[in-house]
Amino acid sequence: MARQPRLNLPDVPQHVIQRGNNREVCFFEEQDYKVYLSKLEEYSQKLKVSVHAYVLMTNHVHLLMTPKTSDGVSRLMQSLGRYYVRYINHKYERTGTLWEGRYKSTLIDSEQYLLTVSRYIELNPVRAEMVAQPGEYPWSSFRRNGLGVAISLITPHEVYERLAKTDKTRQKRYLALFEKTLSEYTLEEIRQSVNRAWVLGSSKFKQQIEKKTGRQAEPRQRGGDRKSESFKRKNQML
């Protein structure tokens, strides 16, 4: 199935994934992670994109961000990607691309899915069996969102802030969310939405996005599906 064009709307969170070319390593040593995060913060401030969650894996990155403008995320990813490729190629005396084509992204229904996607992102190192607990991984926003470590890059989303009135209680309640395992259905739902650029949210949210953009927010049922309207109409005529 052909990949859908990206959806970009101001003030709507996006889950973004960018992978190394052929799934190869894109972070080689500690300084590389630090450079990427430093430039991510610089461009996020310059382009008015709030970063709520992130994880830098060895061969890909996950970001949860909300732009103030419709092209904020795309401009950030373009600027960040180009800078980091130049940095890596110069440092390691290599040539060619580092990233696997275009980054992937999807719009997120903040009320329904923002905290779920944040957990999904921060649990990546645990699922990859790199660490036993998310707080053990140094290149993740979990240290800020769950443990209260100061990370200037992170701007808490209002959904996160509504967890409690104080930072300590907020972090405690956020940590409590990690006590429940993300179901296989939820994991697949998140993966499919970002890989295929389908909107991740409630039916109402998807309808709102379709109205604003004029583009499908989710795959339509096939004509032969017994639940589809076209199938019903066809069989009523027989």
Rank of each mutant, 00 (worst) to 15 (best):
R6L: 15
R222W: 13
L177C: 12
L107G: 00
F205V: 03
R222H: 13
S193Y: 08
P219D: 08
L238D: 14
R170L: 00
F28I: 05
G148N: 01
K68Y: 08
R143C: 10
S141D: 07
P219Q: 13
K165R: 11
L56K: 04
Q18R: 12
L64C: 06
V61S: 03
D32K: 02
Y83T: 05
S193R: 06
L182R: 02
A53D: 02
M65I: 12
L9D: 06
Q45E: 14
T58A: 05
D109C: 00
N124V: 05
K34L: 15
L107A: 01
V199K: 07
T166N: 07
R215Y: 09
M237G: 07
V131E: 11
S118Y: 00
F142I: 08
E42A: 13
L56I: 07
R19C: 01
Q14N: 13
Y92F: 10
S38K: 11
E129A: 07
R23T: 03
I108Q: 01
H60R: 09
A164P: 06
K165F: 10
T213H: 11
Y103D: 05
E29A: 10
E179L: 02
S79T: 08
L107E: 05
W139P: 01
R191H: 13
W99D: 07
Y83E: 06
P13N: 10
L177G: 15
E179M: 02
H90F: 14
F142S: 06
M65P: 00
N22M: 04
R119V: 12
Y54E: 03
E24I: 07
R6D: 10
Q78E: 12
G20Y: 10
I190N: 00
Y120H: 09
E129G: 00
L7D: 05
K39C: 03
P134Y: 09
V159C: 08
D167E: 12
P134Q: 09
L47K: 03
R144N: 12
M77E: 03
H62A: 03
N8L: 14
K206R: 15
T69P: 00
W139Q: 00
E184S: 13
N124A: 06
K46Q: 11
K234H: 15
H90D: 06
H157C: 11
P125I: 05
P138W: 15
S183L: 09
P125T: 10
P13L: 08
F231H: 12
E129M: 14
M77L: 14
Y36Q: 04
G135C: 07
Y33E: 03
Q221W: 12
S228A: 07
M77P: 04
S202H: 07
G146Y: 04
N195F: 11
H62G: 02
S70E: 10
G81I: 04
Q171K: 10
Y36D: 02
P13Y: 10
Y113C: 01
E210H: 14
S193E: 05
E136G: 11
H157T: 12
R196N: 10
A128M: 14
M77N: 04
P125A: 02
S44D: 00
G101T: 12
Q78P: 03
K39Y: 14
L98W: 01
G72N: 05
L147G: 03
T213Y: 08
N59K: 01
Y33L: 05
D71T: 11
G20S: 07
V49F: 01
H52M: 11
W198M: 08
M77T: 08
P125K: 01
R19L: 02
A164F: 06
N195T: 08
